[in-house]
Design a protein around this nucleic acid. Structure first.
Length: 465
RNA sequence: GUGGCCAUGGUGUAAUGGUUAACACACUGGGUUGUGGUUCCAGUAAUACGGGUUCAAUUCCCGUUGGCCACCCCA
């Protein structure tokens, strides 16, 4: 790009907010198009962290017998309205919802479970051995206001176990999560609660509303709204007055039906058996309507002050969801993790070294000089690649010094130099980058020669251990 | 949706009501197209956008947009 765009326009035309292309403006000063709010690019330097998180999820999935599933990012809006719950914030105000050209009412998935359950029902998975254990990983979307650890497009890994009611499945899913975080070296606390059945929860809700209605005078406006909309949330209120009232308020545990109570006790017994530490949290309510019985959440223990968004993942039983999405009554339980927050913890623990990561290391680097050298180098590169030896190049550069710099940055053990002289002799120069010594070998034997050197190196390393 | 703080090259920072906006890193090129990890030289590149006050604004004021943070909610 030799010539740069002339001058900056004296005054830029007010860039219209919406992306109207304005083809009439003859001035050719293309404004850079910005990424959408709440979205972000996962740049190459961060990819190793993402890879570590995904690998950890994949390897545990296979260890615990979960099969991979991928469901669409776009689904019928009704799936989430029915699945997640009409009155939840996730559906009511955070859904990425729009009409397609064909007039369908669709939405970007705000979580993973609804799509998986839809797929279970649609593909008649009730006819394969139960429980059906599925896992996924991918982007989800919520039209929320961005903040620390909160994005409009973020990534979740989730595990669903459909078709089994026993508490042991709940416990195993929890220990899976425990190991997931442990393997990644993330310090987190498990909080757990039971929501009972929809009936017992409704009864409890009534009792709670009755209790708080009597003290309505002490509630803030915000909390009064909650009392109407989502009374269970009142228990989360940070208002000190409510905190006080909370102590006297009816407890969810006392309203649990016998079955849920027994189920919960068994989950806890299993956790004790596994040695998974937990905190009972009678006020833990999850933001989705479909949960029944066991619910849990993982909170980061990072001692950094700022972490308002410390929920790393959570899960729970959803015994009613399959039925409400048109399947037969089928018990199920699942959990999910926010990979963005996991990755940010990984980065804290293991900050990136400034440069290092941007250069992919190679064993061999091919440097060329002149047209003939360059031509031969292109073919030689292929030979090494086919031999499975990591090899690098900078064919676009003609200057050897610049090429050696790249070889060094990519920590090549040997640089092969192919110039006019070598091409004419049918040889190639091998430079040992550590020793600085050089030798000339027959170009036909170059791959063989390097293989030998690699073997020697390995042998020496083994002896050194 | 509500509130607080903020906005200078690709990144991290500096400076100023006054005309060449500084430095470092990174990037590109060069030191007789033949040698890197420790050199030297040069180059590309910025005051978010719009309006106002002023002789003069990157600096002060307002608006917009965006970012960060908190509430809300959640992962």
């Amino acid at each position: 790009m030799p010539s740069k765009p002339v001058k900056k326009p004296a005054a830029k035309p007010a860039a219209p907010k919406a992306s109207s292309e304005a083809p009439t403006s003859s001035k050719k000063a293309p404004q850079p198009i910005q990424i959408l709010r709440g979205m972000r690019d996962l740049l190459p330097n961060d990819q190793p962290y993402w890879q570590a998180a995904r690998d950890a999820a994949a390897s545990l999935a296979s260890a615990y017998g979960f099969d991979r599933i991928d469901t669409p990012i776009v689904e019928d809006t009704a799936l989430f309205v029915r699945g997640v719950g009409r009155a939840t914030d996730i559906v009511e105000k955070e859904l990425y919802r729009f009409e397609t050209l064909g007039g369908e009412d669709v939405a970007l998935r705000p979580e993973g479970t609804a799509g998986v359950v839809r797929s279970y029902v649609q593909h008649g998975m009730l006819n394969i051995p139960q429980p059906v254990k599925l896992w996924y990983e991918g982007p989800v979307f919520r039209y929320d206001r961005p903040q620390a650890g909160r994005f409009r497009q973020f990534y979740q890994a989730g595990f669903e176990c459909i078709g089994e009611a026993d508490a042991i499945v709940d416990a195993q899913l929890i220990v899976l999560g425990y190991n997931f975080l442990k393997n990644l070296g993330i310090d987190a606390t498990l909080r757990i609660n039971s929501l009972g059945t929809p009936e017992s929860r409704a009864n409890y809700k009534n009792a709670l509303v009755a209790y708080f209605r009597a003290k309505k005078a002490k509630l803030s406006e915000e909390d009064k709204k909650r009392l109407l909309k989502n009374p269970l949330r009142l228990l989360d209120s940070k208002d000190p007055a409510v905190q006080e009232l909370k102590a006297e308020a009816p407890q969810l545990v006392d309203w649990l039906d016998e079955d849920s109570k027994a189920h919960f006790m068994r989950v806890l017994e299993y956790l004790d058996e596994l040695g998974v530490p937990y905190q009972l949290d009678p006020y833990l309510v999850r933001g989705l309507d479909y949960y029944t019985k066991t619910v849990w959440e993982w909170f980061s223990n990072s001692d950094d002050q700022e972490l308002a968004q410390s929920a790393l993942g959570g899960g729970g039983r959803y015994d009613g969801l399959v039925e409400s999405l048109g399947g037969r009554p089928t018990p199920a339980v699942g959990c999910g993790f926010g990979l963005d927050r996991i990755v940010s913890r990984l980065k804290e623990k293991n900050p990136p070294s400034p440069d290092q990561m941007r250069y992919m290391p190679v064993d061999v680097f091919i440097a060329q000089l002149g047209d003939m050298g360059r031509k031969k180098a292109l073919a030689l590169f292929e030979e090494f690649r086919e031999a499975g030896i990591p090899v690098g190049e900078a064919f676009a550069k003609s200057n050897i010094k610049a090429q050696m710099e790249v070889a060094n940055k990519r920590s090549a053990k040997w640089a092969l130099v192919l110039g006019q002289k070598e091409v004419l002799d049918g040889t190639v120069l091998i430079r040992d980058m550590d020793a600085g010594s050089q030798e000339t070998v027959d170009i036909k034997k170059a791959v063989h020669e390097i293989k030998k050197k690699l073997q020697n190196l390995q042998a020496r390393e083994q002896k050194g251990e």
